[in-house]
Simulated scan of single mutants.
Amino acid sequence: MTLEYESPIMVAIQGVRGAFHEIAARQALGNDIVTVECLTFRELVEATSSEQADAALMAIENSVAGGILPNYALLRNSELQIVGEVYLRIVQNLIAQPGQTLDDITEVASHPMAIQQCVDFLEQHPHMRVVESEDTALSAKKIAEKGLKGKAAIGSSLAAEIFGLEIIAPEIESNKENYTRFLILTRKNGRIHNTTSDKASICFSAKHEPGALARILNDIAECGVNLTMLHSLPKVGSKWEYVFHADLSYNNYMQYLATVKMLSESVTYFKILGEYQAGSEIF
């Protein structure tokens, strides 16, 4: 990743310290970042837009659960831009107060998605009552602050380290190929800049007529650009019309510019959400 910035920078994350968003932020922007905790993705966008943070890490899709569609709309309706991406393997652990064992645990708390990712483990331990919470790391934080015994959280090893807890069952996720893609967001003309790109995220609306989308997709292919992702979201205020979000990858920037020109002339709405270097998987 070719990002230019001066450390330290303030980075908005969804969740509290120890969340997977912080792990992704550290991998992308270094360990000396200052995290700005946001309980919701909307708060994350607002914090970055209002200069409370220099950048943000936003989860956008998961290799098991698919795209986080509300986040596409949040990004489209903001003035933030994508300057990079991170793919992070999600390793879930059962964490609790030091000295606890699996037999001691009667209740497990975590975010609903984390619970779903660990369903096989939880089915093997039916004596553990499962409780949904707002955030993986926040569940760990509450156990640490209240000194709760007999209760555990599902979360990251970083959360266990930060809150002084112990991993009593490591890597309990059912699917070991579970990755989440995070976008690095910043304000235009902000402190972080990317120097090269081979990928872009865009959104557009096609004319509401037969074959309109098919023609656009064919024109993208003829420009020599690879369409790697396509999602449709309802167009608010227009029944049965849609906004399409797409990722484009390219080796030749001029071919990408030709694609942009073609789209801007053939669609009813078009916006570039960011040009950046494609990320690689982090283990």
Rank of each mutant, 00 (worst) to 15 (best):
L3C: 14
V11M: 11
A12H: 05
A12N: 04
Q14R: 05
Q14N: 03
V16H: 12
G18N: 03
G18E: 03
F20D: 06
F20P: 12
L29A: 06
L29I: 10
E37D: 09
R42N: 03
A47T: 02
S50M: 11
A56C: 14
A65L: 15
L69C: 00
R76E: 14
N77L: 02
P98R: 00
T101E: 03
L102P: 13
D104W: 01
I105Q: 08
A114N: 10
D120A: 15
H127A: 06
A137S: 14
A137I: 09
K146G: 11
K151M: 14
K151W: 09
A153T: 10
S156Q: 10
G164K: 00
L165C: 04
I167T: 13
P170W: 00
E173M: 09
E177V: 02
L185S: 12
I192Q: 04
T196D: 08
D198Y: 11
K199I: 02
C203A: 15
K207Q: 07
E209K: 15
L213Q: 14
L213M: 15
N218L: 05
D219I: 02
D219W: 02
E222M: 12
M229R: 06
K235W: 09
K235I: 00
K235E: 10
G237R: 13
S238R: 03
K239C: 07
Y242V: 12
Y242L: 04
V243H: 06
D247V: 05
N251I: 02
Q255K: 11
Y256H: 04
L257R: 10
K261Y: 07
L263W: 01
L263Q: 01
S266G: 00
T268I: 04
Y269N: 00
E281W: 05
